[in-house]
């Protein structure tokens, strides 16, 4: 099981050809209190970089993009009533959706945890 991050602060945890996607702990910290998450429909086919979800904090709405292409297989229904789970556990219980990868080769170029942490430090 490997976790990758994007420059737009999504994470993707990969197991074979299946993956789970969410936003990073850094992203939830930047957004502040999350009050709404709009999730994709199960079955939706996403291209790499396509808008997949919307996360809304008290202040603003932000788009969440698909880190790689694939088909949505499951969404985290718990976020509908308790979007604050994303603040509490962004990289665990606060996952957004699961997908079946179209092309695992697209994972190349994403950051591993160390690289992402350095990237975030560079943004400060």
């Amino acid at each position: 099981m490997t976790i990758y991050y994007t420059e737009e602060h999504e994470w993707i945890r990969v197991e074979g050809e299946h993956a789970t996607v969410g936003i990073s702990d850094h992203a939830q910290e930047q957004l502040g209190d999350i009050v709404f998450v709009e999730l994709p429909e199960v079955g939706k086919k996403l291209a790499k970089g396509e808008q997949a979800a919307v996360v809304e904090s008290v202040k603003a709405a932000s788009e969440v993009y698909a880190p790689v292409g694939g088909e949505v297989t499951e969404v985290n229904g718990a976020l509908e009533d308790k979007p604050e789970i994303v603040n509490e556990d962004a990289e665990g219980e606060g996952w957004f959706f699961k997908m079946k990868l179209a092309d695992p080769g697209e994972l190349e170029g994403l950051m591993d945890r160390d690289a992402y942490e350095k990237y975030v430090e560079g943004l400060a």
Binding site: G32, D33, V35, S57, V58, K59
Partner: peptide, 10 residues
Amino acid sequence: PLRYPAGIIA
């Protein structure tokens, strides 16, 4: 200040 560590809702 936009918010403090407690956060906007708190």
